[in-house]
Design a binder for these strands. Sequence first.
DNA 1: GAATCGTTAATTGCATGCAAACTTCACTAT
DNA 2: ATAGTGAAGTTTGCATGCAATTAACGATTC
Lengths: 214, 214
Amino acid sequence: MLADDLAKAIIDGEFAPGARLDEQQLAQRYAVSRTPVREALRQLATTGLIEIRPRRGAIVAQVTPAQLEELFVAMGELEATCARLAALSMAPTERRRLQDLHERMGALAAANDVSAFADANHALHTMIYAGAHNIVLADMAAAMRRRLSPFRRAQFRLEGRLPRSHDEHGQVVRAILRADAPAAHAAMLQHVMRVEQSFEDLCAINQPAMAEEK
Amino acid sequence: MLADDLAKAIIDGEFAPGARLDEQQLAQRYAVSRTPVREALRQLATTGLIEIRPRRGAIVAQVTPAQLEELFVAMGELEATCARLAALSMAPTERRRLQDLHERMGALAAANDVSAFADANHALHTMIYAGAHNIVLADMAAAMRRRLSPFRRAQFRLEGRLPRSHDEHGQVVRAILRADAPAAHAAMLQHVMRVEQSFEDLCAINQPAMAEEK
DNA sequence: GAATCGTTAATTGCATGCAAACTTCACTAT
DNA sequence: ATAGTGAAGTTTGCATGCAATTAACGATTC
């Protein structure tokens, strides 16, 4: 589906936040006419990934720091809810797989393999969404993650972020494994807040570099 | 916007779940061509209100009892999260307005004014979403409410539902007013579960009538 | 008599074309 | 020199038309 391809391109950072999404260019790029491009853009706009300004075209959603804060809070609450439900209702098999993955990620963190850790991180969180046994909630959490991904891509590159992230995961995973719902909720909430903090640190570092571009 | 009009028509029950949404008919009805209709349908599909089956047209989303259960659980968790955050961060003015509205709804419940109570109910929940001071979460909760509304329309007609609903609201409102976040969370979760229970009771009553149609 | 296959009709998906609106650039006036 | 106004070009928004797929109906065969 065209909307998925476009979403992937945006998530992968081929279009930066604020970049104009010209219908004709996209039509050429994907070798279709403007009609399906327009339909795809409307879909992405409803997910919040892009923004359509009437008569003025579409841009990749750019977000003020205040909105970003809200997005992270909402994401944290969603993920924390999934973690709480997962603690209550994960099947034994799911719990074992979660533990396995978490342990494997320890090695990746130690080796500082950012790319593999990022993939595994995605899998871990997705596993927790699935463990909530509620497709609606899982879809919402996944959509939220997608919506934030343009802003979160470089976060793991921060020095020493991998082991700390792994530690935070450990808190969440252990709480889920012992079916401690409140602890799972709290640990996940804290984890997401830490991710946000890392992102803000990263912004603070890059801000001067971004400023000198213009 | 066309998508909003269409969504309203679906929410108001002009198109029942499972009804086919013919592009040409909709185009005639709204006096536009098929192109904007298609764009609107794609948008509604991403919200989950309708379902587009490739090459086979769009229908109002029909939902199995299991999916409906998931929708109500997800909605309950979302609303409970909003209630918890509202308890923590509502401004004094907002708290007073919430209390005012709740007290006015007591009279509506006593008078058994179903229509006015339903409107006020919507306002009350929206007020709590807003009280969370997080637009992203509020939008998600509102979208969820929209998505469930085709199935929840007749729920207030159940005998004696209004006073009980008002009582449940009282639990939530009092918890929010005294900034008791865990209690607000729990009370809202319970309220939504009770709404779901009412809906299921209603289904159990209507089921035979639906069965004899075919 | 029922089931399967072929044909026809209808509907979706996409391309193209045209009109309206916005942006940009140039020119004029203060 | 700067700001405001005008016009041209670009881009969105929508309508229409055509092709492809699917559903429905009828005919034929077992």
